[in-house]
Design a protein around this nucleic acid. Structure first.
Length: 112
DNA sequence: ACTTTGACTATAA
DNA sequence: GTTATAGCCAAAG
C-alpha cells in the first residue's frame, strides 16, 4: 500500500469486495485503513467513485445506523434503495431492515 | 499555502 | 430516546 495511489483507490478496492446482498459502513472501511483515516474520507471516496473503473458498489455503504445517507448522491434519490432491494435488502424509511444481519465487516471478512 | 467541506462517528449532556 | 460538540483528514476551492 505504499504506492502513490490516492486513498480513494484503496477505499474503492475495499468497497468492491462487499458481497452482493451485504452492506458495510463508512466507519468499518475506515477501520481497515487503521483508523488513522477518518470515516468522512470514505464518504468523500464514495462521492468520487462515480467514474471509477472497475465500478464501486457504493450503494452497499451506509452509515453506522443503517441509514442511506448517501442516497442523494445517486442519479435519483431512490436509486440506492432500489439497488439494495434488488439484492434482497429491505429498506424502510431510508433505513435498512435487519441491518446487523446484512452487515459485512471488512476488518474480519475481507480477504485480499 | 490557507480555509472549507463532507455519503462520519464517538462522546456528552 | 434526543441534540450538540468535537475530532477526523484528504480533497476541493
Amino acid at each position: 500500500m505504499s504506492h502513490k495511489e490516492s486513498l480513494f483507490e484503496v477505499i474503492w478496492e475495499i468497497a468492491r469486495h462487499i458481497p452482493p446482498g451485504r452492506v458495510t459502513t463508512y466507519g468499518a472501511i475506515a477501520r481497515c485503513l487503521g483508523d488513522t483515516k477518518s470515516a468522512r474520507l470514505v464518504g468523500w471516496a464514495m462521492n468520487a467513485s462515480h467514474h471509477a473503473h472497475p465500478p464501486v458498489p457504493a450503494h452497499r455503504v451506509v452509515n453506522k445506523n443503517g441509514l442511506l445517507t448517501g442516497r442523494h448522491h445517486f442519479n435519483s434519490p431512490t436509486e440506492m434503495e432500489e439497488l439494495l432491494r434488488k439484492e434482497n435488502i429491505q429498506v424502510v424509511n431510508n433505513k435498512i431492515v435487519n441491518f446487523e444481519q446484512h452487515f459485512w465487516d471488512p476488518f474480519h471478512e475481507l480477504t485480499l
